[in-house]
Write a protein that binds this DNA or RNA. Structure first.
Lengths: 209, 209, 209, 209
DNA sequence: GATGAATGAGAGTTCATTCAT
DNA sequence: GATGAATGAACTCTCATTCAT
């Protein structure tokens, strides 16, 4: 679990305060970005919703792009936390996978619009910030790769080594598509149906013969 | 094949000319949106790259959003055409599916950045335009649903009716993820490998026992 | 007479219009810079005094610094024109010098505040613009150097070659100090007195024995 | 030697401390103003370079303009001290003048950028502060006027009474131009050459017949 | 006496859109 | 049908100054 974050300089020295204020900023910005998009949200709106003045906002960030990075990073962390919490070392790989997918899709469903937000605005990040965000994305994918490898080892799952990475991506995309194609999927399926059907299809790919 | 498009008013009467000019606009705008994004592209740039003045641009559209719709619609049409061209009525459902996925992924690989563009900027469309774009998206999905149903009928594919729609979405997403996760996938797989592996996994889900 | 100017890009294509609008800008900006200084004058004020909107202002310049360059260049041109007009080829070097100083000081007295402006704001120019402005300054100095050399040649003035350049600078500074030390000098002397006394002192330095 | 200074109120009562802190402020501000100019230097920078917080800075001044006044006044004092130190009562007026010019130009050359600073930023002072600064300027000029008068009295210099003041200004300007026209003068002359040539020219104006 | 977080007016600049020619 | 100069609301960001601690 590599712990790497882009550090954003602040004019304010007290780290506790910086963290607190940035949490306020993130909370405000997430809502605004979700409802209006990054480009149509103004820095003044972010400041107002955060509960302080525009001048104060800029004591804690250097540019509007910083807010986007803060937001993307916070969402990713929330996602990662949600997924990791479901891991139970006592289960077989196959069981662990089912459980992890179940929880993952639940998290994605709850975080719905936040996930969509990352998905749509990552491109607006500065190249440097984008690197960090994509790295985080890969770390999250790796969680599923690890589970798959465990299942292969204990014989509960069948998959070629070369496909592990791809399958991990497929699982991640399962969750993402539930958010970005919800306009179509939710007309036909509930989250539970979606989860069950996708899990069932997936396990057919991984069945030991 | 429902043919429905949002009609965009033009000050110019001659329909031939309108079409010609809008093609110029689309060609210019696609490149600009790909390299700078919709919001960071100015109408002046669109006009200049289109080969005429800003005044003339506004003779053929009513707002910058119109250009985005024109672009999204054109990309979708190109995609659809690419996919439909691969359909060969003499094949079994299973064969047709393999062939269609092969061609679909090839098209998506070629249109790469254009697909990404639709994905990232659809949210900037006006609600009305977005409706049309999502409708088109569903029509494209329906192409695969039709192939799947054909395979079920002729016995070459096995799938519950309820899963047909979901499976069609899954196939579409297979193509999309090749573009929006390319930063990760292309480190590990070529298009050919990706196609083969995904097709093989998919067919395990659809195998007749 | 080298003719070199920094060219400032304009979004407007018609050169006649560009020249006309820039004259308006210069006229407005000179007054504003004189009364409030460059830094305390806002671009909005410049636009308003020029008679058009802020948007229009930026069709003719790229930045506020451009206005400063335009202003400095215009003032220098006016100065140079005023000085060159006094040159009469039929006079001896000494006579020509007297005449040129007389006219030069008259011009400087009339342009008073504009000269002061150049003096105080040249430092705010971009390095590139500053180069052009200082070059112009040297060209103007060279006018006097030429007159001095003529006087040396025809025997009406006595000065070592090495001192010609220095003396030319001294003459230029005579005019400048009349503007930037006016708060002291005008308490004691009229322009006529100042001119006469300085000319008389100067000629003592240049007298042929 | 009139001793008059604008008094700047301080929130701090202890005069020793006020003086010490203001020295720190001046030292920091001089460097900053020289390298960035008054307007482009922020109060935060001044505080940081002075070694204390922005809050503390405002305990010792009332506004940013106060810092400029403090700086101008300090530079003037340094200049004045440098000039006065060269006065040797045992010399004749003419000798004293030569010596004073020599020392004066040496001081101006050393203080170079500080002199330029006063010269360029005096205009940004409040009207009241400007009055004090110009008064100081006149006092310094008067030093040379006194020397000239002494030379007239002892017969070592020849000059009409009415020209004394003007000549004193001319001498001051000799030093100033060495700083503000250095971009041209230093291409041709060293300080020693400049001093010698200007002194020699000047003495021709003042020679007793 | 020292601190530094908070403020918000105001700066320079951009750009979608209009409309007279 | 084509042009492009004009517009001004709106944007991001800065910074001198204050005041509670």
């Amino acid at each position: 679990m590599t712990e790497m974050r882009k550090s954003i300089p602040s004019l304010v020295k007290d780290p506790k305060l910086v963290e607190k204020r940035r949490e306020q900023i993130i909370e405000a910005a997430v809502q605004l970005f979700i409802s209006k998009g990054f480009h149509k949200t103004t820095t003044r709106e972010i400041a107002r919703e955060s509960g302080f003045s525009i001048g104060t906002l800029y004591e804690y960030i250097e540019s509007k792009e910083d807010v986007l990075y803060l937001v993307c990073d916070a969402i990713h962390s929330e996602m990662e936390k949600g997924i990791r919490s479901s891991i139970d070392a006592s289960l077989s790989g196959a069981e662990m996978l089912k459980r992890a997918i179940l929880d993952y899709l639940k998290v994605m469903d709850q975080m719905d619009e936040k996930v969509l937000l990352i998905y749509q605005e990552t491109k607006s990040l500065t190249p440097e910030a984008k690197k960090y965000v994509l790295q985080k994305e890969e770390e999250i994918t790796e969680i599923f790769a690890d589970i798959l490898r465990r299942g292969i080892e204990d014989g509960s799952l069948s998959l070629e080594e070369k496909s592990v990475n791809l399958m991990a991506h497929n699982i991640i995309v399962l969750g993402e598509m539930w958010t970005f194609r919800r306009w179509a999927l939710r007309k036909h399926y509930t989250l539970e149906e979606y989860t069950e059907m996708q899990t069932s299809l997936l396990l057919r790919e991984l069945q030991t013969t």
